[in-house]
């Protein structure tokens, strides 16, 4: 536990001395503020054009930021040799992985918190009326995205040998999950029997954190009816308070599962030398 805290502390320190973190912070703030200015005449409430475009912006930016910062942090451990050094200490691999995860999520969530703080603060001056439920939902949405994509980042960092490899894999995974997702699914599922499409779509949505979190927020914003009668029961479920619990459970499952697999990868690497 103390080991883990140490790793996390070191991670936060390194994170905030990393110029990358600040460049993403500036990027995130600039974009969200530009959106606010464009929509300064409208109210930000429920599922509308404004919240829809904000969702898209966040979906583009936050996963990319998380994947880069997360995977680079892990590969740098290998590249700079600090992992080799840490391996000689009597410290468990699990403490190392969890410490990394906790430290990185604090760094990323602080960036998100700063962005939202600035956005909410300035919206008061710009005359945009921000509905509080919508604001909190967006905050939860962003945090969820960061936490889930961080597990993916840990994967990438564990599997790649250096920063360049991590960068390439990060960008391709980002493209696959965010932009190429419908294209790939529509083309592949088109080859399958008609009746398989819907269950497969639902199952695959649980695999893609971006879609999972996006749909959760769209439904919570009150836009569930746009998904049509096919998903009526899902929508009803998620709209209830127990739906949030279900969502939290799925996220937790995601995080714990990935950390265990990442742990296994590092443990294997450690024993080999």
């Amino acid at each position: 536990m103390i080991d883990m805290m140490q790793v996390a502390r070191r991670e936060i320190k390194m994170g905030f001395r990393n110029p990358w973190a600040y460049s993403f912070l500036i990027l995130f703030c600039t974009f969200s503020l530009s959106l606010l200015i464009i929509n300064s005449q409208n109210i930000v409430e429920g599922y509308s054009g404004i919240t829809g475009s904000m969702l898209s912006l966040i979906l583009y930016l936050l996963p990319l930021m998380t994947l880069f910062l997360g995977s680079f942090s892990l590969t740098s451990e290998k590249e700079e040799g600090s992992w080799q050094l840490l391996s000689t200490y009597p410290m468990g691999t699990m403490s190392f992985i969890v410490g990394k995860y906790v430290g990185l999520s604090i760094v990323l969530l602080t960036i998100v918190a700063f962005g939202y703080g600035l956005m909410g603060f300035l919206s008061g001056f710009l005359g945009t009326s921000f509905d509080s439920t919508t604001y909190f939902l967006f905050l939860v949405f962003s945090c969820g995205l960061v936490m889930l994509f961080l597990t993916v980042a840990l994967f990438i960092g564990s599997l790649s040998k250096n920063r360049w490899q991590a960068l390439t894999i990060s960008v391709s995974i980002w493209f696959f999950a965010i932009i190429g997702w419908p294209t790939i699914l529509i083309s592949v599922l088109g080859l399958l029997p008609y009746l398989w499409i819907k269950p497969l779509l639902v199952a695959l949505t649980f695999i893609n954190p971006a879609e999972l979190v996006r749909l959760f927020v769209v439904i919570k914003l009150g836009g569930g009816s746009i998904l049509g009668p096919e998903y009526f029961q899902w929508v009803e479920w998620i709209q209830k308070p127990s739906g949030s619990l279900l969502f939290a459970a799925v996220c937790l499952f995601w995080i714990v599962g990935s950390i265990i697999i990442v742990y296994w990868i590092w443990e294997r690497g450690r024993s080999r030398g």
Partner: peptide, 21 residues
């Protein structure tokens, strides 16, 4: 367009978020 009343909670929360971060 319908207008919403100003919400104090957003202001307070954003101050806190900004401060903590």
């Amino acid at each position: 367009m319908e207008t919403a009343e100003k919400d104090g909670t957003v202001m307070v929360t954003s101050w806190m978020l900004l401060f903590v971060s």
